[in-house]
Design a protein around this nucleic acid. Sequence first.
DNA 1: GCATATATAAACAATT
DNA 2: AAATTGTTTATATATG
Length: 673
Amino acid sequence: MMVESASETIRTTPSNQNGVSSQSDVGGGREGGSNGDTNGEISPVDLLHLQQQQALQAARQFLLQQASGLNSPGSNEVKQSPVQVPVSMAMMSPQMITPQQMQQILSPPQLQALLQQQQALMLQQVRHTHARQLGSKQLAFQQQLIQMQQLQQQHILNLQRQGLVPLQPTALTLHSFSAAMCPSDLQQLWKEVSGVQSSEDALKQAEGLDLSTNSSNSTSAFAKAASAHIPLHSLVNGQSHTPKRDRARLFEWISSFTKSDSGDDHVPFYPKGGQPPSSHHEEHASSHPLYGHGECKWPGCEALCEDMGQFIKHLNNEHALDDRSTAQCRVQMQVVQQLEIQLAKESERLQAMMTHLHMRPSEPKAFNQPLNLASSGSLLKRDSDMYPEGLPHPPTSAATPITPLRQGPSVISSSSLHSHSHSHTHGIGPIRRRNSDKYCTPIASELAQNCEFYKNADVRPPFTYASLIRHAILESPDRQLTLNEIYNWFTRKFAYFRRNTATWKNAVRHNLSLHKCFVRVENVKGAVWTVDEVEYQKRRPPKMTGSPTLVKNMISGLGFGSLNASYQAALAESSLSLLNSPSLMTPSAASLNMLHVGHDDVSSTVEQVNSNGSCSPTLSPHQYSHQVHVKEEPTELEDDSRSVSLLAGVTRNLPLPSDERDLEEDLPTEELE
DNA sequence: GCATATATAAACAATT
DNA sequence: AAATTGTTTATATATG
């Protein structure tokens, strides 16, 4: 009987989420990208570049502003947010940035503000600087911008629906529709939320309970927006009724944060040791983050306070711990989270853009295609031997981002919040690494690099069940696992599988039975599953030949997790295999591999990072290690290797592409065994 | 439209 | 007897 029914209850939703519905394939236009924007010449690129920088700048400022207004709660958000998408956007080449991509990148409403700013700047530039040259292009750009806005709006809804965006406070969402936000707008928003409106409403909004946002599809976005608006106003009028339970939940929620702050290691905001109690802020005499220029800086509040004493009094009276304050705090946290995420993304993008421009200004295609396509071609040849899957890299890399540096242990979100959380704060350091890496990293590395991510974020891994199972088995010391061990591996490595149990377990069993490559071996104490590499390789040929579309999908998929997970998985999988294959090798072989890249370093570094956080020991170095590289095309390889290293943060040089290649070749043989 | 690949669901059998 | 583990069938989607 259905064993899993029990667990199943939990996940029902999720499955739907990814599995089926999402295919809408948002990515539509992306493939064009490969060649697409080449036409743009440089000027447009430059503009974009500027845009990015400006956006970044603005984001930073905004972020700082917002962050400063946030106190203790902030800390937790920092710590957590698993969700960063490992992804890929990074890999998009600058030149090919399309409205859709923009859309993807700028998810949060707040970003709209940035967008607006960018628009303004851009238009200015167009006029002053490039007007003459651009001429018609100018118009095109303007149109594009408009389009971008529209897309963004839709996208926001989509993300919300998919749960990718942490619940956006309704208010914000609404706001975004009316107009792009800017800091001042945000303030206004706050007023709306905090002002007339009852605290409960705020709460509701903060939790996203009310909205229609979640529902629907992009098509009805506007309709939703419209409907959403209504509630807002009505709320303002003061009618509302929120169950007290929500309130209780809120307090609970907030308290969880404060607790975590003190308890967990990461407390970004306060110095570890002397962290004062939450209330402490009030005590600080001379300055207070919520007080400045004679007025209260509490979001939405601009109460005038003569002095600190008065301010504190005001703070205690008006912003005591109640639903409204809590809700506001929550909203603020989300704002910060979003901005941080965005900042990180934008930074990566900027890096990628700059890198690209510096490296090969004239050759746009390098990135996109590169990947796979090119490589695939070569791969294919070798595929015959072994891996067809060459394609993968690209995607992986794309996905990767890297990033993870998250500091906090995270987790909170997943457990405490129903929706996925995101946010990671990577911000700082990580961003630095350059993108180039991202572009080409192989999948293996993807996994390795994002291992932490997958462990903590409830994001479906872009690999097929078969590839994951294989990976799990090969990773084990004896290259054999019992069903239960396989399950454990899944749950250990992927948060996603911690949550959605029933279906995936069934899927795992199904895959084990269905694919010839998985061989059941009777053992003394039961049965174990092993992998028949030959069979495994056999089945893949038909797969993807590295068509552009695939790549595109991967990219888009990775980026948002939303797209048809399964397909992504399939695509990605190919890459995964690459990873695995190395692992297959005997230790000695492995060692060879290592030479080349130093993945170790990478993996190790990554792991370290992870360890700080919450990761489990898991990733075995060796397996991930090799993966890295893999494949073909010398030129590209180089890039890959670099990228990898970059990710690691550290370093390395990019040495030996050639080695990598060798590895690959070696691998096959080994695998075949 | 067909073939293939994957995901998901579910029925059912075999084991533990 | 219940839970696990395996098999198998069916359906849906995406891609070539």
